[in-house]
């Protein structure tokens, strides 16, 4: 008995085969797409580089605050308003300071040195170790920063940081820059101008300002690239890590200290 119907003339084996191929493609394709997308975003923070700073304290001028001012402008810190009635001392203790100038005198020799202090971008950052939510993190390229979406404002990272490099936002933020989101109740610190670097710049705001003033005390670059200016300078002269005893392998190094 012949049977005619409107079903496509499809071999059962062929049908199964095609279904398996289609299903496999449906499962694998998004994964491939994701991997491709990820590969593209990896270019922003690659572990092939490690960003760092070299600071020549001999060139850091007494009384100069060009780097601090530039940092404040670059990251919208200068947009912060002092709350009414707040004393100078409390304002200095509570306002964010990503970079600060420190003047030192050697207790034995009396030698004076000036230097900027900021987040030292440790290879083994204590702030990242202690952060309960993982908001404090280290990028593949060595930049240590805070994810302000997951920071709960517990300030444990500030307790743990050996360099006092972190600031808590103590007040409402009226104005801010899109490149540097800021929120009351979260912690922040120097991120080596991550936004600029990701956009393809090769210098930080502090370095530009220092160079502009003719001091050239700050050098930014890739510590892993042996041909970079910073790697060559580090190879040529002896440099120090602050609190080297903690063996955090800082990304910020100092000469002549």
């Amino acid at each position: 008995m012949s049977c005619s119907n409107d079903q496509p003339d499809m071999n059962r084996r062929e049908f199964l085969g095609k279904s398996v191929v289609a299903a496999t493609a449906a499962v694998v394709a998004p994964g491939v797409m994701l991997t491709v997308a990820n590969a593209a975003s990896d270019e922003g923070a690659s572990s092939a580089v490690r960003w760092g700073l070299l600071i020549d304290t001999n060139k850091c001028a007494d009384g100069c605050s060009a780097c601090v001012d530039a940092c404040n402008k670059e990251n919208g810190i200068d947009l912060m308003q002092r709350p009414t009635g707040q004393s100078d001392e409390m304002w200095n203790a509570q306002r964010p300071q990503w970079v600060r100038k420190v003047k030192l005198r050697d207790k034995q020799t009396g030698e004076i040195s000036n230097l900027p202090m900021m987040c030292q971008h440790c290879e083994h950052p204590p702030c990242v170790d202690v952060c309960p939510t993982g908001a404090s993190f280290k990028r593949a390229d060595g930049i240590v920063m805070v994810d302000r979406h997951t920071c709960i404002g517990c300030r444990y990272c500030m307790m743990a940081c050996p360099y006092k490099a972190r600031s808590f936002i103590h007040q409402d933020v009226a104005e801010q820059l899109t490149g540097t989101p800021r929120g009351k109740g979260c912690v922040e610190s120097c991120n080596l101008c991550a936004g600029r670097i990701d956009a393809g710049h090769s210098t930080t705001a502090c370095q530009d300002a220092c160079n502009k003033d003719g001091h050239q005390a700050i050098l930014f670059g890739d510590l892993k690239n042996p041909d970079s200016a910073i790697a060559k300078a580090l190879k040529a002269e002896s440099s120090h890590q602050i609190r080297a005893d903690l063996e955090l392998n800082t990304g910020v190094r100092y000469t002549n200290i």
């Binding site: 600060r100 420190v102 003047k103 005198r105 050697d106 207790k107 202090m117 006092k164």
Partner: peptide, 8 residues
């Protein structure tokens, strides 16, 4: 070292 000045 002795810290002579610091804003922080």
């Amino acid at each position: 070292k002795e810290v002579l000045t610091s804003s922080f």
